[in-house]
Nucleic acid binder design. Structure first.
Lengths: 343, 343
DNA sequence: AGGCTAACGGAAAGCGCTTACGAAAGCGCT
DNA sequence: AGCGCTTTCGTAAGCGCTTTCCGTTAGCCT
């Protein structure tokens, strides 16, 4: 009795179809060199037998895999979730499997994830991570990616341009400027900023945009209090309490992401502070719930989904001699949480 | 001149370290049979050379891969996002790579994704999909999974029990009963339910729980209007308009998920309807923003993250003779969106 | 001190697939 | 009928790793 195999091999299919392994392989992978009727017959047999090709063997032999990797910081974060859905959309369109890795805001894990992806010989890697705060890690990642590219891998990165690869850049600075100009135009002069760690380029860029707006209006940005906390709803709450305690006179709070803005709204509400009656609140990102909050949130929309899609498309293209850059747009979305300051 | 290789092979490491390939392999994979000092030295060399093992080769040779698959319906949906983070947590703890596949509410794609996962010989598969509305697809998936398990694969499914595999079940019915009892206890008698497609078992279970509560209170559930729409914020808005138009007398709306509840709150607000003053609104799921809405949302918390974690743990265990079931708890979370009906 | 066991290291056989390369067969042409 | 050409298919050589099976060597007891 033949040894019982756990799974079907290509050879089994070939035998059943009465062809050689090579022909079977070519038929199933759609390569040329097999007459269409024969190929069709082989596919038929394979399907009937319930054959599923071993992806590892295939990738090992072919030296490449029909999958791409996506590195995100936190899959729960709406910012990254939207990027992921853009990448997934393009991946599905191209028949690529998308491997999502998350780093959980530990830059070291980001490096590990990149290594793992390289090890599994994915066809392309899209990185939408946190940015490396450490120069050594940054350099290590860069080296890793260069080697990967030298071996034929494709890379695109979102929101950074230090890695020497194709990049999709959100308009953080322009967006920051737009939202600040909106607040300034409404007449606000005493505002506070709720921010995450300024070491992140994303955040630094947003702040520089705000500074620009102040400069353009001939206002002194250095006097604007910046309250730093976690870049989350909880951080927003913390920042709101701090602002209330230390800067009671502000008429507007600009949160550098919507999550913080949501936390801020929640604290203001529990303190009975009218928004935008007494204090205006603005966010950044335009996460999905922003429009359904009470009051709905004035914010800046960054096309995250499109950026994710664009990044993968960029990575999939023929590699260019020098890194390409694409700048995604931004859009000021004015809703109910901002109004002129109280008289 | 030696042929230029694109990537380092295990052999290169072995040569540099002055050992055989077998020894190098054993050292790196931590298998026994190598003295610790030697193994350490080999690891050192490998690290210094920047060697990264080819995962495909490894998996092919070993017949298994250090990765698990997760099938979710929509990665943007908070429900699935939380499950994913639970799975990721356990995966990270066990040193497993998690491959996330999303099906985008197309059951056919769910089947495809399962096939792909099987093909890549992942060690375990966790399915948190949409449920198959089609019996044929259901049967096909079941067959596929049985074959996979026969070949040593591990499977756990969340929120379903028809697949003949280990399952983690949310307390949808008990939760539905709890939230309905809460509304009933507050004195509401004229309520409406906003629901997604009742063909989904998740939803059907929640409704049956609500029905139970009515039965226990000696009330007639058949008279309660059920408005069906998409299980999203947009669907919630649509449902809210319908309820307002067709059932103007209701004092409470029970949305069968928080997303719908958020949409409902938004519509009520724009219509100037006080919540909970005139109408109470309750949700289901306790998504992260629920507590930061205005008013904060009364809902039922289902431990999604824990369920994800539990599912992977269950899958990773030694397989049992018959499918195991774990029921995750639920918790009624009373916040500001519900109150006694207006006098 | 000698023979035994135990522990370690090396050669080689695959894992299941892709893909040169070459053989065979079919075609039109002279 | 024979020649070169194209098309179709089979043979076999890997892809890079794990792991079994032995040959060595070190460690230990009497």
């Amino acid at each position: 009795m033949a040894k019982r195999r756990t799974t079907l091999r290509l050879q089994d299919v070939a035998e059943h179809a009465g062809v050689s392994i090579a022909t079977a392989s070519r038929s199933l992978s759609g390569a040329s060199g097999v007459s269409e009727p024969l190929a069709e017959r082989v596919r038929e047999v394979a399907k009937r037998m319930g054959y599923v090709a071993n992806l590892h063997a295939r990738s090992l032999a072919a030296g490449t895999s029909r999958s791409v990797g996506l590195v995100v910081r936190e899959i729960g974060d709406p910012y990254f979730t939207e990027i992921a859905s853009g990448v997934l959309r393009v991946g599905a369109r191209e028949g690529l499997m998308v491997q999502i890795c998350h780093t959980g805001r530990d830059p070291r894990r980001e490096l590990d994830q990149i290594r793992t992806l390289v090890a599994s010989r994915v066809g392309a890697i899209v990185i939408a991570g946190s940015g490396f705060l450490d120069a050594r890690l940054e350099a290590a990642a860069k080296a890793e990616l260069q080697a990967y590219r030298a071996a034929g891998g494709r890379v695109a990165v979102i929101g950074r341009h230090h890695l020497g690869v194709d990049a999709v850049l959100p308009e953080n600075a322009a967006g920051g400027r737009a939202i600040a100009e909106h607040l300034l135009a409404l007449g606000h002069r005493r505002l506070a900023i709720a921010t995450g760690s300024r070491a992140l380029t994303t955040i630094a860029d947003r702040i520089s945009g705000v500074a620009e707006a102040f400069g353009a209006a001939g206002l002194d940005f250095t006097t604007v209090p910046q309250v730093e906390a976690e870049f989350t709803r909880a951080g927003g709450k913390e920042a709101a309490e701090t602002i209330l305690a230390e800067h009671p006179g502000v008429t507007a709070v600009l949160a550098l992401n919507d999550d913080m803005a949501i936390g801020i709204l929640s604290v203001f509400r529990s303190h009975g502070i009218a928004v935008p009656g007494r204090i205006s609140v603005a966010g950044f990102d335009d996460v999905a719930v922003a429009q359904d909050l009470a009051p709905s949130l004035t914010t800046v929309r960054l096309p995250m989904t499109e950026m994710g899609a664009l990044a993968l498309e960029l990575a999939l293209k023929e590699p260019a001699a020098r890194p390409r850059r694409r700048v995604a747009g931004h859009e000021l979305v004015v809703r109910d949480s901002t109004a002129p300051p109280p008289a």
